[in-house]
Structure formats: structure tokens, C-alpha cells
């Protein structure tokens, strides 16, 4: 998942041109690579602003994967069938894997995973606002797959063409896995809708709670997101927030009809003239509150990550100490 927060651009320009005056040439080469839709690779020269913006975007994406394990992870031990348990366990494991590749992609830009983790648990870097909402029933597992992973796919498929090579390649694999996640969520909901009245109520309730926060995943409306322009120019970002949101709504409406649930928006209707669905306005004040840390679960999510990290300190220290002792023993053996 990609938080739109990345739109807050680091506008630092590259360091002053070196004495050799090579930078303008490098900048030209970079600009030409972007213009030709070719990839920037880790060893290529890149403007400092591009590097910093990417590190921040990729780190926020990685953090979102890792924090995003929590809302669903709690249901692995409670999943009501062994098949659902296996599917959910594998899904949450995939998210850990996505976090790993993304932190690795950020490391190709000179970032350090431990430092990025510190920034997350100290609240200095953000993750997607959606994970600050609670999961209240097993139907939430299905709705998260359908809406949240669906919205993530809308955001992420264009990133498979991101100008930065390692990020684009990581996104190809991640998008494949996200599509499994979305389908398993939808399939769970289909099964529940064919079940008991209580199950159908659980599904509708979860849809009611997750619809608006899911629309907020695309970020504020375009006229309130002025900083996206540089990311679009750098081809880090490919479509505007509103374009992606519209795409998500248009895709989801027929799926909701097929499922037999009502999306909680009285203004939602097909507009023949536009060839798209019209829909209501999300509560942008709520989005701002959640982003600033006042969502229902912000403190809980960060605290869990902090606790796991802190309680794991002695384990990581032990691994490091063992590796150092091994190296010392090997060296001693080689000398002797």
C-alpha cells in the first residue's frame, strides 16, 4: 500500500555542482533517461531530491506492509476454518515479505533498514492511514482483502512502471501477490453472503465501516495535493489521487452488486455523461486527524511494532555477537 503522504516532497536540490562542473551533464543524462521512460538504477547519478523522495515513499510503503500485518494478523489464531487459517496466515506472511523487499529497495538508495524502523516507531515516518482502523469481526478480513488490497493494487500497478528500477521490479512481484489477496478477500465475502443471516450482517457492517477509509487511501483531492507534480514529472507517481480513486470506485461498484452488499454512499450513481460513477465526498478532516496520529488505533499499532522491536533487541544482539565470534574464530584458525 502506498500512502499519499509521499506527496510531501523533499524539494532539496542536488548538492552544488562539483568543481569539475560535471553535474549539469549528469542532470541532463538523468532527465533524458526519465523522458525516454527508461529506468534509473542504483549506480546511476540522480538528483538528491529524487533520491530522498524515493527513500521516503518506499520506506512508507514498507512500513505500511509491516504495520498492515497487525489488523489481520490478530485473526489468524481465530480463523473459523483451517482453510481460512492457512490462507490468512500465508497472506500476512506475504506482507512481511513485501516489507522485506521494499526495505531492500530503499537500501539500494543508501537508506538503512534499522534507521527506517526507528523512524517508524518514533513516529517520524508515516504508514498508510487505513491501518489505524480496527478489525472488529472476521468479515473485516474479507473486506480488507477486497477494498484495502484492491485500493492498494490501484495505487501500485502504475508503480510497476516507476522510473526507479529496483522499486518497479519489487512492485511487479508485490502486485501479483496483492491480486491473490484481493481475490481471497472477495471469495471469503461471497462465501459468507451465502451463509447465515448473521454472516451477511457481519459483511454489510464491515463494508459500512471500511468504505470511506478505503477511499481516503488515495489521498486528498488533487486540488489539495499540490506537491504531487514533481513526483509525476519524475515518473515516481503515474496518476493523480482523484484518477485512482475514480478507478477504484468504478471497479468496486459492480463487485458490490454481485456480492449483494450496499456501499454506504447515497450519492453513488452512474453518470452516463462522464462515463464514471459519481460519489460523495470523504470526510477529509477525518483523514487529516488519522494522519496526524488521532485515528482509532494509531497508538496501538506503533506500540506493537515498538514492543516487538525492543523485545527482539537481545536476539539481534546475540546474532551479531555470534557472527563476530565466528569471524574471529575463523581468522584465528586461518592465522594458526
Amino acid at each position: 500500500m502506498v500512502g499519499w503522504e509521499v506527496g510531501r516532497m523533499d524539494t532539496t536540490r542536488s548538492s552544488p555542482a562539483g568543481a569539475d562542473g560535471a553535474e549539469p551533464v549528469l542532470q541532463q543524462h538523468f532527465d533524458a533517461t526519465i523522458a525516454r521512460d527508461q529506468r534509473i538504477e542504483p549506480r546511476d547519478w540522480m538528483p538528491e531530491g529524487y533520491r530522498k523522495t524515493l527513500i521516503r515513499q518506499i520506506a512508507q510503503h514498507a512500513h505500511s506492509e509491516i504495520i498492515g500485518m497487525q489488523p489481520e494478523g490478530e485473526w489468524i489464531t481465530r480463523a473459523p476454518s483451517l482453510r481460512r487459517k492457512a490462507i490468512l496466515f500465508a497472506k500476512v506472511q506475504d506482507e512481511a515479505g513485501h516489507g522485506l523487499y521494499l526495505y531492500s529497495a530503499a537500501e539500494t538508495l543508501g537508506a538503512d533498514r534499522a534507521d527506517l524502523t526507528d523512524r517508524l516507531i518514533e513516529g517520524r515516518q508515516k504508514y498508510s492511514s487505513i491501518f489505524n482502523y480496527p478489525t472488529l469481526s472476521f468479515a473485516d478480513v474479507g473486506v480488507i482483502g477486497w477494498f484495502v488490497d484492491g485500493a492498494a493494487i490501484c495505487n501500485q500497478v502504475p508503480l510497476c512502471r516507476s522510473s526507479y528500477g529496483p522499486y518497479a521490479r519489487a512492485m511487479v512481484r508485490i502486485c501479483k501477490e496483492e491480486s491473490f489477496h484481493q481475490r481471497q478477500g472477495y471469495e471469503l465475502l461471497m462465501t459468507m453472503m451465502r451463509g447465515t443471516a448473521a454472516q451477511r450482517e457481519m459483511v454489510q457492517d464491515a463494508v459500512d465501516r471500511w468504505w470511506w477509509p478505503s477511499l481516503m487511501m488515495f489521498g486528498p483531492p488533487d486540488d489539495a495535493s499540490p506537491n504531487s507534480a514533481q513526483s509525476m514529472a519524475w515518473k515516481i507517481k503515474r496518476h493523480s489521487n482523484d484518477e485512482l480513486r475514480q478507478r477504484f470506485v468504478d471497479m468496486t461498484v459492480p463487485q458490490a452488486e454481485k456480492l449483494g452488499v450496499t456501499l454506504p454512499d447515497p450519492e453513488l450513481r452512474w453518470n452516463d455523461e462522464r462515463g464514471h460513477h459519481d460519489f460523495g465526498t470523504p470526510d477529509w478532516d477525518e483523514l487529516m486527524r488519522v494522519i496526524k496520529g488521532d485515528g482509532p488505533c494509531n497508538a496501538q499499532r506503533t506500540e506493537r511494532r515498538r514492543t516487538a522491536h525492543e523485545e527482539g533487541t537481545w536476539v539481534r544482539e546475540a546474532a551479531t555477537a555470534h557472527a563476530a565470534k565466528q569471524a574471529a574464530r575463523a581468522q584465528k584458525g586461518a592465522v594458526a
Binding site: I76, F89, G99, T307
Partner: peptide, 20 residues
């Protein structure tokens, strides 16, 4: 499964889930 989101490192998240 109870280790999920509580493991000391991300590699251990993945490994413990594999084993589970």
C-alpha cells in the same frame, strides 16, 4: 501464529510463518 507481528526481525516473521 501468535508470533506474527511480534518476531524479533522480519526474516523471523517470514520463517516462523513458513514453519507454522
Amino acid at each position: 501464529a501468535e508470533w506474527t507481528t511480534r518476531a524479533p526481525e522480519l526474516e523471523e516473521e517470514v520463517a516462523l510463518a513458513n514453519i507454522g
